[in-house]
């Protein structure tokens, strides 16, 4: 087996293992921290695929932003000791059956479709081409994204403020 394939399997194992911890762990703190492993593993796979800028942004936004936000929400909302009350799971067996069928369908589709063969990878920096695309073909969605972020900012501030007693 090639060296690259071994590394790929290692990263994939870490990613899938921590993703499973997120979904199945009984303790919500463990779930939140396992999310770190998943995000880091996905970032590593981006590096593997030669997408350097996306990997950096993944670490910045997901690990630095969303994960910290989720941890804050966990700490703010509940008594961490009460695992039974706070993190129950219901209907495991039927859910696993349905989801298993779904996964086997997906894998079958992936196996049987004749995907276009991967080209030779040129490990060139991607940042400048992404920047060009943002300001040429994707200018309108780019501006709309900034609008979405502004709306989210205002919405979050309005939703989570303390209500004034009148």
């Amino acid at each position: 087996m090639e060296f690259a394939t071994v590394i790929f399997y290692l990263i994939a194992a870490v990613t899938i293992g921590s993703a499973a911890m997120v979904a199945f762990s009984r303790n919500i703190i463990y779930s939140a921290f396992s999310l770190l492993g998943t995000f880091a593993g996905v970032a590593a796979i981006y590096v593997f695929l030669g997408a350097d800028f996306v990997a950096a942004v993944q670490v910045l936004i997901y690990v630095g932003g969303i994960l910290v936000l989720i941890l804050f929400a966990v700490m703010l909302t509940h008594r961490i000791a009460d695992v039974q009350i706070t993190n129950r799971a219901v209907g495991r067996i039927p859910a696993l059956v349905v989801v298993g069928v779904f996964l086997s369908l997906l894998v079958q589709i992936i196996r049987e479709t004749p995907w276009q063969k991967a080209k030779e990878i040129v490990y060139a920096p991607t940042t400048s081409r992404i920047g060009d695309l943002f300001l040429e073909n994707y200018l309108l969605p780019f501006e709309l994204a900034s609008l979405v972020l502004l709306a989210a900012l205002i919405g979050a501030a309005v939703l989570s403020r303390k209500e004034l007693k009148e």
């Binding site: 994939a12 990613t15 899938i16 993703a19 499973a20 997120v22 979904a23 199945f24 919500i28 779930s31 939140a32 999310l35 998943t38 996905v42 796979i45 997901y62 969303i66 989720i70 929400a73 966990v74 909302t77 706070t86 993190n87 129950r88 799971a89 219901v90 209907g91 495991r92 859910a95 696993l96 349905v98 989801v99 779904f102 996964l103 997906l106 894998v107 992936i110």
Partner: peptide
């Protein structure tokens, strides 16, 4: 690999009864 991660996320959304874990699974 991404199909497996997606399916784990779906499972988390379906079986969990804590809305923060549901949100984490959506991120997955």
């Amino acid at each position: 690999l991404s199909a497996i991660i997606f399916v784990i996320g779906v499972t988390g959304v379906v079986i969990r009864r804590n809305i923060i874990v549901v949100l984490m699974s959506v991120e997955l």
